[in-house]
């Protein structure tokens, strides 16, 4: 029992990641509202940021800027850079998604998927 608890606590960052991942995915699948789906998608993507960033942090490490101390521990900068890119990508995706939702709302008058499919089937 103790082992389980400690393993959960030691890897709490992973657990948070997994929780966000699953929660985000659940929202995407379970919600019919297009805006809410995008929110879920955003949560899902955020979990990935965490997945990359959290192992990149080294306890006691400093920013990867060369300092005089030969024993200095540096954090790995690569995950941060990657996630910076991923955030930009995620931003673009959500922006485009919201743009589409706005257009859909203009055309169909609703952002609920079931209503939209009803209206498409009528034609």
């Amino acid at each position: 029992m103790n082992g389980l608890v400690s393993s959960i606590l030691e890897h709490y960052n992973q657990w948070v990641t997994i929780f966000l991942m699953v929660a985000g995915l659940y929202v995407v699948v379970a919600r019919g509202n297009m805006v809410k789906k995008l929110v879920g998608l955003s949560v899902f993507q955020t979990s990935v940021y965490l997945l990359y960033i959290s192992p990149g942090k080294i306890l006691g490490g400093t920013a990867p800027i060369l300092i005089d101390d030969p024993n200095a521990v540096y954090s790995n900068p690569l995950p941060h850079v990657l996630i910076l890119t991923a955030i930009v990508v995620g931003l673009a995706t959500i922006a485009l998604g919201l743009g589409l939702v706005v257009r859909i709302n203009e055309v169909y008058g609703t952002v609920e998927e079931d209503e939209i499919f009803e209206r498409s089937d009528d034609e």
Partner: peptide
């Protein structure tokens, strides 16, 4: 319907 198709693709493609 292309709009909805694009939206669906966006969701699944991003996943």
């Amino acid at each position: 319907r292309a709009l909805v198709a694009a939206y669906q693709y966006l969701i699944l493609g991003t996943i």
